[in-house]
């Protein structure tokens, strides 16, 4: 059984349907990516899975339980972490406070302290600036913080929404390397990206979204070499 199973999901903002019946699965230990242009419904899908939006129809199963009507805070406690688009760090709190809030639902002080130091060894820059206000970090560092914070609840599935958005090429590479690293340590990831090249080259499974529907699905490497994908998303003639 897949860890996350999305069946015929419809999501609407008022009368406008942003997601028009998509279905996919994320297996334990996999990295699955949703790619597509602006307005394809990628972010809407993630926000619906994490409970910030309610679906108009369809079904979301996490670990065998139906969660489409579960409140957001309970979904987090089930082990589904969401690093939202635009990072949404707490700018006036210190880096350490941000990380501790990521572990808000946990009560094991020792485990939390261990995970904080893990986060610092994964992202040394965060450790150096632990008592600095998060809003003073650069965009790439803020993205690192957002990812580190999402990992603080020891998620069984990590959902990353556009982690490379607005970053310099060097930062983008660093973020993608981190995701590869997380993948090799066995973290299950659902990745939403506009940078199709980077996302597909590290994903086990990829889905191409077009105006609310899945247009194409396949193994990451296969999609990367698919002519249609190359033309539309990778800008090749």
């Amino acid at each position: 059984m897949a860890l996350l199973e999305v069946r015929d999901l419809h999501v609407a903002y008022g009368k406008i349907e942003a997601v028009k019946g998509i279905s996919f699965e994320v297996e334990q230990g996999q990295v699955v990516t949703l790619i597509g242009t602006n307005g394809a419904g990628k972010t809407t899908t993630l926000r619906t899975i994490s409970g910030l939006l309610r679906p108009a129809a369809g079904r979301i199963m996490f670990d065998g339980k139906t969660i489409q009507n579960t409140p957001a805070h309970q979904i987090v406690s089930m082990g589904l972490a969401h690093s939202p688009e635009g990072r949404h760090i707490f700018p006036r709190m210190t880096i350490e406070e941000n990380l501790l809030l990521g572990a808000y639902l946990r009560k094991d002080a020792a485990g939390i302290a261990e995970d904080v130091s893990n986060a610092y060894s994964m992202f040394p820059i965060l450790g150096e600036r632990r008592s600095q206000a998060a809003g003073t970090l650069s965009g790439g560092e803020q993205q690192m913080l957002a990812m580190a914070r999402a990992l603080m609840c020891r998620p069984r599935l990590l959902m990353l929404d556009e982690p490379s958005m607005g970053l310099s090429p060097i930062m983008m590479k660093q973020i993608m390397d981190t995701i590869t690293q997380l993948k090799s340590s066995g973290t299950t990831i659902l990745l939403v990206e506009q940078n199709a090249q980077a996302a597909l080259s590290l994903a086990d499974q990829g889905h191409v979204l077009e105006v609310g529907r899945i247009a194409l699905s396949g193994r990451g490497a296969d999609l990367l070499h698919d002519e249609q994908v190359r033309k539309t998303y990778l800008g090749e003639e």
Binding site: S50, G51, L52, P71, A72, H73, Q74, V76, S77, A81, H82, S83, P84, H88, I89, F90, P91, R92, M93, E97, L100, L101, G102, Y104, L105, R149, A150, C153
Partner: peptide
């Protein structure tokens, strides 16, 4: 307390606070 931290998180960014599991 945890309660105080939750309040500050809500005040700063309610969406992010929800994503942290804060009701």
């Amino acid at each position: 307390s945890r309660l105080g931290r939750a309040w500050v998180a809500i005040r700063e960014d309610e969406t992010a606070a929800e994503a942290m599991g804060i009701h």
